[in-house]
Amino acid sequence: MQIFVKTLTGKTITLEVEPSDTIENVKAKIQDKEGIPPDQQRLIFNGKQLEDGRTLSDYNIQKDSTLHLVLR
């Protein structure tokens, strides 16, 4: 499925993911596309910070959902 990740600069990254993917996996995909190390990434969905060990389906993230990427 496709999800979107919006950065603070207003750029939107499109990712191909599975609901069973962990947040860690998603961060690795963002690193592949953008070169941002996962330990600098914080992903936010519906105002909640997403934890590495959880999956997209844990957070009820579905296709065409938009996550927000904050760098630390």
Rank of each mutant, 00 (worst) to 15 (best):
P19N: 10
R42S: 15
E18I: 09
D39G: 04
S20I: 11
T14V: 12
K27A: 02
R42F: 10
K33D: 05
I23F: 13
G53S: 09
L43K: 00
E51H: 05
Q2R: 14
P38F: 10
L15I: 08
R72K: 12
I36D: 03
I30E: 00
D39P: 05
A28E: 05
D32I: 03
T55Y: 13
L43I: 09
I23G: 15
D39F: 05
K6M: 10
E16P: 03
K48E: 15
D52H: 09
E16L: 15
L15R: 00
R42G: 07
I36Y: 15
F45D: 07
L69D: 01
K29V: 12
D58N: 08
I36P: 13
Q62P: 14
S20M: 05
T66K: 08
R72M: 08
A28Q: 08
K11L: 11
L43Q: 00
I13V: 14
L67H: 01
E16V: 06
I61Y: 01
I13F: 07
N25Y: 15
N60E: 06
I3W: 00
E16D: 09
K29W: 04
P38W: 10
S57W: 07
E34Q: 12
S65D: 09
T14G: 15
F45Q: 09
I13E: 04
G35Q: 08
G10N: 05
S57H: 08
I36K: 09
P38G: 15
Q40D: 15
Q49L: 14
Q62G: 05
L8V: 05
G47H: 14
K48M: 13
I36S: 09
I30Q: 00
K63P: 13
S57R: 14
V26G: 00
K63V: 05
E16Y: 03
P37V: 12
L50Q: 01
M1V: 15
D64W: 14
E16W: 06
G53W: 05
R54Y: 15
Q40P: 02
V26N: 00
D21Y: 04
T7A: 03
R42E: 09
V70Y: 05
E24D: 02
Y59I: 09
D21H: 09
D21Q: 03
E34V: 15
